[in-house]
Write a protein that binds this DNA or RNA. Structure first.
Lengths: 222, 222, 222, 222
DNA sequence: TATGAATGAGCCTTCATTCAT
DNA sequence: TATGAATGAAGGCTCATTCAT
């Protein structure tokens, strides 16, 4: 930062004292968000206490408040973090930029569904926290999550419209509704996983059925 | 559960003097459970206070403790009560004892789905309490609810097996999985309704799609 | 309250349970306000804790919150209570309704000053809390206390104007300023008392000097 | 207190190499005390945090603890500093070493009062901190401040005794009491200023009245 | 020496639960 | 039996103080 002024009069403000250990703050924040994910997910947001989170992270409670101004703020970060992971799953699954045939579309849907399943299986409670519990905490939060889902739905809808224009999805498709249904249909899979009954085989079958349903609905009865 | 009604209508056999208010206790319990349903549903279990429940029921707080030993116990009863209502919806929807063709089966599924939608739209918060919030409160509770869903799944699975035996569902159907998928598919609809976006039109379309999906999966690709 | 309806249908709402012990609430409130007076006065408002107040009153902390919704509310009541006592002192001192000569006026001033001295000597810290510390806590509170003093000043000013009209106070007296000065001059006496050095003799002398000053200023140089 | 300034300007006697920053510690202390004055005065002692003081002084919080062992100790120094400023005001007002007539005495009293008013108007919150808030913090502190006022009173009393001996104050004057009354009479003015209602005109009138009162009391009824 | 990260005691407040009446 | 007054254990949050660097 101050490298250009090697011999200038702008003395570098004589950093005294313990150097702020670059990156520590960010590491701590991450560590705390992760602990909060675990604790909020397992006990629920209301029932979880800041002291639980601190204990899980191995720090004093006061430390939590150096990095997050309130329990509620911490939740915001937990949600951001979790949503980010979900979006990563979607991005990883979407290998082709845009599909150009029903087959490519189907393959992408399958791939995304499988990534999401993996995430759900890895962190069932966390996903539940984001997808369901959070909407009950706060109106502001509910609005945020609804907005997020709307964004996702819109993205998916534009995908579908693209398919309609290219001719591999039927004309007259209610793309907004279809997109919403697709989002929604992920939830049962989430519940399946949540119960821990999702053998790879069953999971594959669920994805198959889901894909079939989507394609069936998208393509129309013929 | 309802041990008293052993022999039909069981009129209390006109006794002399003031009847000892048999059943008063039971009435109070019911009244309290209903108040608790309302209060827990509207504020969430953690945020609701016993004093809210008592006020809603028009009794003193102490009285609550004459009938339920703790807030947690009261929740147990709220859940039982709500589950009972959901089962009623299912029972009401299942007009024929058992279907004997794919068409009857489909009609029943549709009918049940519609009853459940009605319930969800009538009491979205209560359903949310049962389906979502409750599992985050307690491991014991979570186990109970999972058990409940397993029971439902088993009931449904035996239905499906019956269809397989009668030949209108395909041989080799993984009935346990199929039953579970059917249960799970209610959830997106539940979310739809919960968000208040369920116009009658969308709801109908959702039920259609749901039924299609189920039938599609049950009957196989051909 | 319900005495008129001796044999009417308006059944008195069947008071069940422990009777609310008429007046208990008011007694508790008083008891708590008095404890709060003592504790706030001796430690200062900020440094005093609710738990101190509760301990002083011999109740649990939770009990305080049954009667006052916050620490701040409790302070409001402490101030009201203290102001009331100060006003009582003034009222007790003001034996004649309105003075009709300089002598009567002087006698009343002396009498009021002496009542106030008694109060100050009995509760020096409490008076300090009201007169000085409170104005530093809150803008809303400061406004209230300034308003109170303005009211007192106005009352006193109207007294003085009355004297001017009746001719025993000089024409052209700045009654508003004079009233304010009189109020202010009580404070030194308060400090005198606060230090515990106020022998009856010195106190009398102070009142003499005060009265002389007031009369001197009121009557003018002639 | 200021032990270094033994022989006048005391220049540090040009030494070789970097001077060991003698006095740096003392400068830091002063800087911190000044910041603490500002912060304690504006927020009140209890509500002010060490971190506020450190920020105001432009140092880290830890640094404060290198110079003062606790927040309480810092307050001690703030009070010393403020008292010193008040004494300066008195000293500046007292132009003649000792008055030798009632007129000179009166002029000095007026001059001192005006200096104090200036100080109060310049730093009302700081004065309030010293005069009011501090006595509520601690018994030890209260004792110190009472002791300080006693010292002032004694000084003033010796002044008055001097006047009695020289004959321009009446024999039999209770000098200790009179001195105390004079101190106390400053307080109403302080309150006037504190409330921001002190126009120059009112202030002049208040000083007039104060001086009159003092002279009146000192000289006796004749 | 200066720093600021870390800590835990303590505050205000809420509320499930108990119990005298 | 019904009541609501009383309670104390938490919980979220602040901040004086310590200490590794």
């Amino acid at each position: 930062m101050e490298s250009p002024h090697v011999s200038g009069t702008a003395k570098p403000k004589a950093r005294r004292g313990r150097p702020p250990e670059q990156g520590l703050a960010e590491r701590r924040r991450r560590q705390l968000v992760e602990s909060a994910c675990a604790v909020f997910a397992s006990r629920g947001y209301e029932a979880a206490s800041i002291s639980d989170v601190a204990k899980h992270a191995g720090v004093g409670q006061g430390t939590v408040y150096r990095y997050f101004e309130s329990k509620r703020t911490l939740l915001d970060h937990v949600l951001d973090h979790s949503v980010e992971r979900m979006l990563d799953a979607v991005r990883t699954g979407a290998t082709h930029e845009r599909p150009h045939s029903l087959e490519e579309f189907t393959a992408q849907v399958r791939s995304i569904a499988e990534r999401l399943f993996e995430l759900i299986e890895a962190e069932p409670d966390l996903i539940k926290l984001v997808v369901v519990e959070a909407t009950a905490i706060d109106d502001e939060l509910k609005a945020r999550l609804v907005g997020l889902e709307n964004t996702l739905t819109m993205m998916m809808a534009s995908y579908l419209d693209h398919g309609v224009r290219e001719g591999w999805l039927r004309k007259g498709l209610d793309s907004r509704w279809a997109a919403h249904a697709m989002n929604s249909l992920l939830v049962p899979g989430f519940l399946l996983a949540l119960r821990g009954e999702a053998t790879p085989e069953r999971r594959a079958r669920y994805v198959d059925a889901l894909v079939s349903f989507i394609v069936y609905g998208m393509r129309g009865p013929r």
